[in-house]
Simulated scan of single mutants.
Amino acid sequence: MAASPAAAVEAPTKQDLEAMSAFRYQLRRFLRFSEEVTHTAGITPLQYQLMLHVQGIEGRDWATVGELAERLQAAPHGTVALVSRCESAGLVARKTSRSDRRQVEVHLTSRGERLLLRLATLHKSEMDAFGWAFKGGLEGA
């Protein structure tokens, strides 16, 4: 959790403000790009992010709703609704876990996987173009 503004001891320098501004600008450009390409593909940016996070869990190709909620920084009930919309669109499927019947796994469908790979290729290319703005940020994410 981030420290409260009152807990900060040193005010940011002009150089810090310039760096923060440049980063926020590049981040907003990237998010706008993402909004445009996902809408062009017929899905929302959140649907893309959900599919990305389903495949982005280390060591497996599925995720739980709780994991997705954490990655999306969303409430679990909102994430359930998003999974339902993605399921209706044929992008994901829910499966009961074989190891724990109480747990539901969210998997990509073949359609969802094809769409994710197509959009992720575009996003990767755009991230590479921003290079410096994302350096170091992806390793620990």
Rank of each mutant, 00 (worst) to 15 (best):
D61P: 00
T38V: 03
S84R: 14
S88T: 10
M51N: 09
R29C: 15
A41R: 10
S88K: 15
V54H: 05
A63D: 04
L72Y: 02
V54R: 05
F33C: 05
T38W: 02
P45Q: 11
G66P: 01
Q55I: 07
L68G: 06
V54W: 06
M20S: 12
G56F: 01
Y25M: 11
L52H: 13
V54M: 01
L82S: 07
L27M: 10
I57Q: 14
H53G: 03
L52Y: 11
A89E: 12
V37F: 10
T40D: 12
E35L: 13
E18W: 12
S84A: 15
A22F: 02
A89N: 07
Q73E: 11
H53T: 03
A74Y: 04
L91M: 08
L50F: 08
L27W: 05
G59D: 04
F30P: 00
R24C: 12
A41I: 09
A19K: 15
F23T: 09
G78P: 00
G90C: 00
L82A: 05
R71S: 15
F33V: 04
D61L: 06
V54N: 03
R32H: 07
E58Y: 09
Q49L: 15
G42Y: 03
P45F: 13
E70N: 10
T40F: 05
R85V: 00
S21D: 11
R28S: 12
W62S: 11
H53W: 11
L82E: 06
E67V: 03
S84P: 00
E18N: 11
A89D: 11
Q47T: 07
Y25H: 13
R28F: 05
G56C: 08
R60Y: 05
G59A: 04
M51C: 13
T38C: 14
G90Y: 02
C86S: 15
V80W: 04
A74D: 07
L52C: 05
R71C: 11
F30E: 10
L72N: 03
I43V: 13
C86P: 02
R29M: 15
R60E: 08
D61W: 06
A75S: 12
S34I: 08
F23D: 07
V65M: 01
Q55F: 02
A63E: 03
V54Q: 06
H53P: 00
T40Q: 14
L82V: 07
V80L: 10
R32C: 07
L72K: 00
L82R: 12
A22T: 11
A63Q: 04
Q26K: 15
E18C: 10
L27G: 00
S34D: 09
P45M: 07
R71H: 10
E58H: 11
G78D: 13
M20K: 14
A89M: 06
F23C: 01
R32E: 07
